[in-house]
Design a protein around this nucleic acid. Structure first.
Length: 256
DNA sequence: AACAGGCACAACCGCAGCCCA
DNA sequence: CTGGGCTGCGGTTGTGCCTGT
C-alpha cells in the first residue's frame, strides 16, 4: 500500500460518499482547495490515492485533469497570443493532433486548452477558407503564414529541429503585418478564471502573471510586438482579428 | 425583455500503454 | 508471462455566456 494512504487514512465520510457515487461536474472551491493542498504537500501523481486521501469524492482522472488544466502553478489561461497561435499551427502541421506534445512547446499551456483552441478557432477558419484543416490548401496557407512568426516573434523559442519544412521564401509578411489589426494588449493580460466561484474574488489561485515563460526567457519583447501592430487579438475575437476576411481573402490570393 | 443560436471552455469518456505483483 | 491498476492522451459532450433578433 502506498505509504501516503497509510499516513492519511481514508476520509471518514468515504463510505457514505461511495454510496452516493463519485462526484462529477464542475469543481467547487472546497474541492480545489483540498486537491491543491494535498498536492502541495505530497506532490503530483498517485491520483487515485490523492482523490481518496484528500477527501475528494472524485476519480483520480478527474483530479489529475483538474490539477493539470487549472490548479497547477504556472498555468496560463486565456488569450492565446499570436506567436502561440502560429506556433500551434506549425507544430500541428508536423505532429497532428498530438496535443500534449504541442503543449510541451508552449510553456504554461495545457493540451486541453490547445485542443479547444484548435477546434473552436482553427477549424472554424479552415471552414471559412472552405478547405479541410488537413488539406493541402490549408497547409499551404499555414506555410505562407509561418515566416511571419519566424521572423517577427523570436524563433529561437522554437527548436528548429521540430519545425516543419518551410519551402521557399515568402515576402508577404509586410502585407499581413499591415492587415493584422493592432490593438488590445493581451500579451500580459489574463482572462479571469471562468469558474463561477472564481468570480467572487475569494479564491487565491495563481493568476499567472508571474509565469516565467518562454517568450520572456528568450528575450522576446511581446509588448513591443503588440505595439508594433502585430496585434492581438483580444479575448474571444483574437482569431477573428487575425483571420479576418481580408486576411483570408489575401491568403486565398497567395494560393491562387 | 425574452428568446434562440453560436461560441468558448471545462470536464468526462474511452482507449492504449506502462508498471508491477 | 499475465492480469489488474494507474496514468496519460485524444475525442467528445455539457453548460454557461454572449450576441443578435
Amino acid at each position: 500500500m502506498d505509504p501516503r494512504v497509510r499516513e492519511h487514512g481514508l476520509a471518514s465520510t468515504e463510505t457514505e460518499e461511495q454510496d452516493m457515487g463519485t462526484r462529477k461536474g464542475p469543481w467547487t472551491i472546497e474541492e480545489d482547495s483540498l486537491l491543491a493542498h494535498y498536492i502541495n504537500n505530497h506532490g503530483e501523481g498517485h491520483w487515485n490515492t490523492a482523490a481518496r486521501c484528500a477527501g475528494l469524492n472524485r476519480t483520480g482522472k478527474s483530479c489529475r485533469l483538474r490539477w493539470l488544466n487549472y490548479l497547477r502553478p504556472n498555468v496560463r489561461r486565456g488569450n492565446i497570443t499570436l506567436q502561440e497561435q502560429l506556433l500551434i499551427l506549425q507544430l500541428h502541421s508536423r505532429w497532428g493532433n498530438r496535443w500534449s506534445k504541442i503543449a510541451q512547446q508552449l510553456p504554461g499551456r495545457t493540451d486541453n486548452e490547445i485542443k479547444n483552441y484548435w477546434r473552436t478557432r482553427v477549424q472554424k477558419q479552415a471552414k471559412q477558407l472552405k478547405c479541410e484543416v488537413n488539406s493541402k490548401q490549408f497547409r499551404d496557407t499555414m506555410r505562407l503564414t509561418y515566416p511571419v512568426a519566424a521572423s517577427e516573434s523570436g524563433s529561437d523559442l522554437i527548436d528548429p529541429n521540430i519545425l516543419p519544412d518551410i519551402s521557399g521564401s515568402c515576402t508577404f509578411s509586410d502585407s499581413l503585418d499591415a492587415q493584422v489589426s493592432s490593438g488590445s494588449d493581451l500579451t500580459h493580460s489574463q482572462d479571469p478564471p471562468s469558474s463561477h466561484y472564481m468570480q467572487n474574488g475569494s479564491c487565491s489561485y495563481p493568476e499567472n502573471d508571474s509565469v516565467p515563460w518562454g517568450w520572456y526567457e528568450h528575450g522576446v519583447d511581446m509588448q513591443g510586438v503588440d505595439e508594433g501592430g502585430y496585434g492581438l487579438i483580444g479575448g474571444g475575437d483574437s482569431m477573428e482579428n487575425f483571420w479576418n476576411e481580408e486576411n483570408i481573402w489575401f491568403l486565398h490570393q497567395q494560393l491562387m
